Structures are given as structure tokens and as C-alpha cells.
Computed example of a mutant assay.
Amino acid sequence: MLNGIFAKKLAIPRDMLTKKAVKQSAENHTGARQMSFMSFSLDQKDIIAKQNCPWPPHNMIGREPLNRTIYDLKTLTTVFGYMKKGHFKPKNCSSYQKIAVVVPFRDREPQLRIFLNNFIPRIYRQQLEFTIYVVEQTPGNLFNKGMLINTGFIEAMKDMKYDCIVIHDVDILAEDDRILYTCGDNPAQLSTKIQKYGYSIPFERNFGGIVIFSTEQFKAINGYPNQFFGWGREDHEVSNRIRRVHYNLSRPFHQYGHCGSVQHQKATKGTDRLEMLRISESIWKKDGLFDLFDHAYTILEKQRKPLYVWIYRDIDMKKVRQKLVSYINKGGKVHK
């Protein structure tokens, strides 16, 4: 039987428990439970070598309002002194999964500070090992969210063998720490009740805000598209990729998916985003994670700050679009 307190608080369906987890829970004096959506990465040798962190976590608070105060980074570094070079690892137990958090970023410094102040304590209470990667694009070309995310994934995997990658918009923040940052059998959207959309999602195929993949899933969909410049539709293409490789789009914490929105100046929309969405249907296996190095992969700086790893990269839109021409058939309409 599930511990009554945790079952009520997290409302974990009985069918989300694996037989292995049920057996383990009977032997575990902490009463922790392991759920099927994150059990696949559990390694038996890790269980033997070190006691697992309690699961579900014991010190969850639930839903609480965002703190929108903009603190300076020095203050935040002092408050979150357990973060070392953007990384946290529980000292006394073994985290079930290692999480890379990738934040595509440009011109959002106040929002980044609000993000750090709200995100870090919530994931910290879940006792997960994690690193935050803030991937910033240089000024000049239109913002390319997809390529920044792909960059973050590649750079993260150079540092550690992560189990999961969280793609996190800097302006959409979880209000509830019961939104667990753990990956499972399908890619998952964790932000399902978004404040700026009336605490709902804008449309059924939306896959933005806060989403999570296992590393295998992210590779299987070839990451994010590289051809979307400006705001809009790259998340829709990722949703299509998930379906093309026969994953289901999961929303495991819909009951707790409340996410606050942080105001900022609106980003410039991509003028050809609908055309890129159409073209991506035929080139998605070429355009993405595995093709990233062909796009003049230029990392200007990778710096390990106290609260996050900062990656600064240049993206040349002209060169990226030149590559697109080689992908499509003659006569294909491409905006340059």
C-alpha cells in the first residue's frame, strides 16, 4: 500500500508503480516509492552502493505564489550556497536521475534572476542531482530557440551522462514543487496550467513552457529544429516530431501544473514560421541535433558561474539558411 499521506498529496495512480518499486518500498524503512515514469533509469548497482533519496520527496510544500522580487546574483548565490558551479548533488543519498536544465536566453536578465530564485528551491526539495545551463545567443540575428536548446544539450552531455533534459522557458515558472522534474517513458510537458493563458495550455499540441525528455528520447526526435528564427512554432514542430517517432505526449502532473508567467517585452515573431513548419515535415531528420555542427558551431564562451553554467554562442542566420537550401527539393519556397 502507498503511504497514505504521500498518496493523498501527490495523487499517484496505482498503475504508475512498477513491481520492482513495490517490492523495494516494502523493504525501505523510509516508505519511499518509485514511479514508473522515472523508474527506467534506476541502476541496480547504484541501489547497492548508496541509499536512494526518498521518493516521493518528503519535504514538498505544494503550490505557493511566485516570488517576483528581482534580487542581485550575489544575494542569490549566498542564499543558494549549496549550488556549486551551477550544479547540485544530494550529499546523503543517491538521486534517482541526473537532470540537465537548459534555458534558452537573450535580453531577459531580470527574468533570469526571478527564474533562479523560484526554480532552484523547488527542484532542490526534490533531491535530484541537476545542473542549470543558460544558453545565450549573441545580438544581431533573430532569436533561435531551437539551436540554443540543441547547443545546451550537446554541451551538457560533454559534462556528465545525464538521464533527462528539461527545456525551460525563462518566463514560465512552476508554482508547485509537486511538478516533479523526472523523465519517463514519453516526453512530458510539465507546464499545463499557464497563467498567461488563464491557467490552461493555448492548444492541445502545445509543447512549450517547461518540457522534459530522457536523453534517448531527445536524440530519437533529432532534438529541436535549427531553422526557426524569431518567436513561434518551433515547439509545434517538436510536438510533431514526438508523434513521428511514435511517442505519446505526456502530461503526468496536470493536476499540479500551475505555472506563473513573468512579464517581459514581446519577442520578434518569425515572419516565415508557418513556412518553416511546413518544410520541417520533410527535413526534420536532417535538421536538428545531429546536424548542429554543420551550422558553424561557434561557442564563444562557456563559464561555470555559481548558480548556472553560462554558454554564449553565435548563430549566423545566413549560413543556417544556406544549409536549408541543400535540404529541400528544387522549387521549394524558402525565405532568406
Rank of each mutant, 00 (worst) to 15 (best):
R108I: 09
K269I: 13
K98T: 08
D272R: 00
E155R: 03
H168F: 09
P306T: 06
N92K: 12
L73S: 13
I114M: 15
I201T: 10
R313M: 15
K333W: 05
R113W: 13
F213T: 00
K266A: 14
E109A: 07
F143M: 08
F203S: 09
E281T: 02
T77G: 12
Y133K: 00
Q303Y: 13
V334I: 07
K323I: 09
Y256D: 05
I70H: 11
Q303I: 06
E155V: 07
G198A: 10
V166P: 06
F105E: 04
K19P: 04
V101N: 05
S191F: 06
D314C: 09
F203H: 14
L17K: 01
M317L: 11
L300T: 13
T271I: 14
K45L: 13
K85N: 15
Q263N: 14
K269G: 14
Q34C: 08
K161Y: 07
K85S: 15
I47D: 07
D72M: 07
I283Y: 01
P202V: 10
S94G: 05
A296F: 13
Q127Y: 05
E275V: 02
L289H: 05
M157G: 03
A32W: 11
G223T: 02
V22W: 13
K266I: 10
I5F: 12
R304C: 15
S250P: 00
K269A: 15
R14V: 14
K193A: 12
K84I: 13
P121V: 05
P225L: 10
N52K: 01
I179L: 06
I123R: 02
H236L: 14
T192M: 08
G184M: 03
I70P: 08
